[in-house]
């Protein structure tokens, strides 16, 4: 059983850079970015610097997972299956974070933690898809069958998603604010946070893939 060398996934200097960058973003968000006008709770509005990147990466992770699922089926490639599952696990983490930060923000901003706003509902559905996907995987002991069936599920869930666009607007008019009303410091903080979280995602993704491939080949 090979020990995974963490240094080989990301070079040390890049790891340090990512950690520093995220620390800087956290500090900047609370000390440097001004309170946003037009929000009910300007202090808590800063949470969106964490919330929005998490949500976007949650969706990106799902798209990545689906792409690998397609590769797994068309090329009968088990490596693609490992990557698909790894991206899904990470996606679940970011979805939980996005939902949690979103609920805190909603409570502060609009008074209730959950409102069935279209974006809230979509992130909840994404959460359920991730959980169902991982539960399905856990129920199939045979590796080849698990790869094929979970890839098929992944693709089906992805194809069905667009139909939510027609269902969601009827549930509630929508509370998510238009981001153009924020000051430029927010833009920079958001962009920086996005980069940092993306780097974290890629880092952990490569680490998990490397670890699972090592255990698979032993």
């Amino acid at each position: 059983m090979g020990r995974v060398d963490k240094g080989s996934v990301f070079p040390i200097w890049l790891q340090a850079l990512v950690v520093l960058e995220l620390a800087a973003v956290a500090v900047a968000t609370f000390l440097w970015v001004p309170p946003a006008p037009g929000f009910a709770s300007p202090v808590w509005a800063r949470l969106i610097v964490f919330h929005v990147p998490c949500a976007m990466i949650a969706v990106t992770a799902y798209i990545v997972s689906t792409v690998y699922a397609v590769l797994c089926l068309t090329r009968r490639d088990m490596d693609a299956d490992v990557k698909s599952a790894a991206s899904a696990s990470l996606g679940l983490l970011f979805t939980v974070l996005a939902t949690a930060t979103g609920m805190v923000f909603a409570k502060m901003e609009w008074g209730t933690a959950w409102n069935w706003d279209p974006r809230e509902t979509s992130i909840l559905m994404l959460l359920i898809v991730y959980v169902a996907y991982l539960a399905l995987r856990a129920s199939i002991p045979n590796a080849a069958k698990r790869a094929r069936i979970s890839a098929a599920y992944n693709i089906l869930a992805c194809l069905v998603m667009p139909f939510f666009v027609f269902v969601l607007p009827r549930l509630s008019p929508g509370l998510h604010p238009n981001k153009a009303s924020l000051s430029p410091e927010y833009g920079m903080a958001l962009g920086a946070a996005m980069l940092g979280y993306l780097a974290i995602y890629v880092w952990i993704f490569r680490f998990v893939v490397r670890a699972r491939e090592a255990s698979r080949s032993s």
Binding site: M125, I128, V129, V131, A132, A135, L136, S139, Y153, L156, A157, V160, M161, F163, F164, F166, V167, R170, L171
Partner: peptide, 15 residues
């Protein structure tokens, strides 16, 4: 598991 796996697939149609 069946109910859990079905839900994301069927929810849009249900709505």
């Amino acid at each position: 598991l069946f109910a859990g796996v079905s839900f994301p697939l069927l929810a849009p149609a249900l709505g």
